[in-house]
Nucleic acid binder design. Structure first.
Lengths: 179, 179
DNA sequence: GTTTTATGTCAGCCTTGTTGACATATCTCA
DNA sequence: TGAGATATGTCAACAAGGCTGACATAAAAC
């Protein structure tokens, strides 16, 4: 089947490695991973929907609240960079989150043009509630897997991200301390 | 740090296992996996956007074309079940795909009320082009990883899906033959 | 003091989701 | 065979959350 002769076992590579190489060259579509990613993400983001509905929020609000709650003092520019939307789109949902007292916007101290965003106690509560909900799903999935799976999945997801952004995301996700 | 004494090494469990258990009990948010999933999906679905634009299509068209191309003879009902949208939403994009000759709708033979959807050659070409684009990203990510990563990632994504849907998705993704 | 930067805001448009109501053809079953 | 269920199509209205373009303000930077 492969291009490597069977005669010399030492030269025989593992089957998955052969498969990988063949797929890269032929670009055989990875339908399984494409579709599983679609279905998994669909269900993953749907968990918080019910709760958000109760507050009159949508997924856009969730994303904003999540990152502000995770990184107190986040600026508008940084948030725009994370979400990759326009400031007009951001402003619509951010305004609502501020009006309903889930997020607070403080003037920057070093640079007074900046707005430093902070979640209010109410905002942190909601963000945590939603994160726990998604964590439950993640933990259930990891419980089925080998202990090494979490590391493998993390690496894989990180490698899917645009190379230019990878360092940025690493700092964001794992903290600026970790090398 | 742990609750298990260091004195008897045999009782010491692996660190990742301890971590997992603690996180399940305390529901410590899995911020890393939550956020990596967000960033990875953001970049993953953005690849096809440019190409779709050239055809005047959006992501909704992509999803429809993908599943029809993958499963010739798919019915409207089955497609609605996969995408979890309303028939009105589906119809809008499906109509455009049919008008522009990327998808063909044939009357069912056994049940003539059904529409059996098929990608045209043009439709298959576009679907394949988009799938290859996403596959390139996936393969680059897997190339960084150990050979066992693909299996681990597949399992993880599948386990993230709602339990009720898992069998359905399995059949869809891996084919109805595989047990 | 001029220019650049960070943010806010108005107005309008697009895609893609929603609900509700109703029409048609076909199948199923008593 | 005739009543009801089913698969699909369609009209209308609406909402969320993207987008562009234009313009305003305050503060920083040079």
């Amino acid at each position: 089947m492969g291009t490597v002769p069977d005669a010399i076992p030492a030269f025989k590579r593992r089957s998955s490695e052969q498969t990988l190489e063949r797929d890269i060259l032929a670009e055989t579509p990875a339908y399984d991973l494409i579709e599983l990613f679609f279905f998994a993400y669909r269900d993953f983001v749907s968990d918080p929907d019910r709760i958000l509905d109760e507050y009159g929020f949508g997924r856009a609000h969730h994303r904003v609240l999540h990152f502000v709650s995770r990184q107190p003092g986040l600026t508008i520019a940084e948030l725009l960079d994370i979400l990759r939307i326009t400031k007009q789109s951001l402003n619509r949902v951010l305004k609502e989150l501020i009006e309903k007292n889930f997020i607070e916007s403080r003037m920057g101290t070093a640079d007074r043009r900046q707005r430093l965003l902070h979640a209010t106690p109410q905002g942190h509560d909601l963000a945590l509630k939603l994160a726990k909900l998604q964590t439950r799903r993640i933990m259930r999935a990891l419980a089925d897997a080998e202990p090494a799976a979490k590391e493998a999945v993390s690496r894989y997801l990180l490698s899917l991200i645009d190379p230019d952004d990878r360092e940025h995301v690493k700092r964001l996700v794992f903290g600026p301390d970790k090398t």
